[in-house]
Amino acid sequence: MKMHNVKHHLTDQLLMAYSAGSLPEAFNLIVAAHVSMCDECRAQLASFDSVGGALLDGTDSEPVSQDCFAETMRLISSGALRPEKRSPARGDAASILPAPVREYVGGDVDKVKWKPIGMGVKQAILPTSKDATARLLYIPAGAAVPDHGHRGMELTLVLQGAFVDETDRFARGDIEIADEDLTHTPVADIGEDCICLAATDAPLRFNKLIPRIAQPFFRI
């Protein structure tokens, strides 16, 4: 996948929560997708992982049972260990969806099962855990996104084309972080149909998730 000149990045708060493993799956997906396209956020993420490593190193330890080591060796020799999956391989330069998204779709854009939601706009909900929702959006060139009522937090990552709203222009690789205070009408650029990945927190997680990710509270 080609690298792009990304202007709109993830917040440190989101990167830190991704590193800590405390985000819902849909948000993990959009973070992984953006990092796949943005070397700056990839580097920043590595530094948050290092904080995790340093904390683990300095943490108080919890004694393990006497046969814990022997059990581990048995586990190794039994070959029963679930293989931990490797990072997905980079697609060829022509692929539109970053690898983590392709894993959910089962292929690139041609494999997406779109459903029309009006005004020519189509969406496909990706199978993630229920605490938040991830969807692909297809917005015809020049069309506006119908009001999709985001309460809470919404992240939108552009995968093809670009859109413009009251705040700025967002092109491939850019991520818009919108909270409930932002009322916006994204309009796809006239040049090309726009494909985005959007993640929203489900109503059930509304109150819990907001303080964690809606309010940017630090820049390291």
Binding site: M1, G21, P24, E25, N28, L29, A32, A33, V35, S36, R42, L45, K85, R86, S87, P88, A89, R90, G91, P98, A99, P100, E103, Y104, T128, S129
Partner: peptide, 13 residues
């Protein structure tokens, strides 16, 4: 613990 998948970024060359 959370019974979720964790999507990982693409590997770098």
């Amino acid at each position: 613990l959370r019974k979720q998948r964790r999507p990982e970024p693409e590997d770098l060359d």
